[in-house]
């Protein structure tokens, strides 16, 4: 009995020590990066700080407790600024160009050129582009299969504006929240996915 108790205590102590050590590596790694990196162009040093979402996802290996994830997703959803005119559909042709464009937010970017969305880096979208990545799911025939209604338009606008509002540790960037894409650019992307005339839905 005594040894059993001792071993439980021992295991607990070990677990605490282990987490303490893991925390320590994490803290050390962060301060090492802050020492070793420097600002370049528009990529300033504050980019090495985690925000609340990044911190929770980093600490939980992208697997946060459900209640925490839900609460933070609600916070993220509250950041979405929907168009004041209530219209979500822009110009799908402009949207196609934004989806193709991989520039934006790196230390080589800036200087007045509009940012792109890099969407084809991760998604299949229009039928004409075969050099698409597959970190995200295929968006070909998106409107055709998911519907063209106002709710769907609002969802896609919100997803592009802040992907973490729907899936806290998504690999997809938050294009509106991070200031990468403008309201008009996001509308154009919504049109690319949800305009019945867009090649995506042919």
């Amino acid at each position: 009995m005594k040894t059993f108790q001792a071993s439980i205590l021992g295991a607990a102590a070990l677990a605490i020590a282990f987490t303490a050590q893991a925390q320590d590596y994490r803290a050390q790694a962060i301060s090492m990066m802050k020492r070793d990196f420097h600002a370049k162009g528009i990529a300033h040093m504050d980019r090495l700080n985690e925000d609340a979402v990044q911190l929770v996802c980093n600490r939980s290996h992208d697997n946060p407790p459900k209640d925490v994830a839900e609460r933070l997703q609600q916070d993220q959803l509250a950041t979405v600024q929907y168009p004041a005119d209530g219209k979500y559909l822009g110009d799908w042709q402009a949207g196609e160009k934004i989806a193709q464009n991989g520039a934006g937010m790196t230390w080589k970017d800036g200087g007045g050129k509009p940012n792109g969305g890099s969407c084809y880096n991760c998604h299949q979208i229009g039928p004409a582009t075969t050099s698409f990545g597959d970190i995200g799911n295929s968006l070909l025939h998106f409107g055709k299969t998911r519907g063209y209604g106002a709710d769907m338009q609002k969802y896609v606008y919100g997803k592009i504006y802040n992907a973490k509002a729907y899936n806290l540790c998504s690999k997809m960037p938050r294009f509106g929240h991070s200031g990468t894409l403008t309201e008009q650019q996001i509308k154009d992307l919504v049109a690319l996915l949800l305009d019945p005339n867009s090649p995506v839905n042919k």
Partner: peptide, 13 residues
């Protein structure tokens, strides 16, 4: 390993 998994920056990568 920590650096490899450290997600930060404007695109959360």
């Amino acid at each position: 390993e920590e650096v490899f998994n450290y997600r930060a920056g404007p695109w959360d990568f």
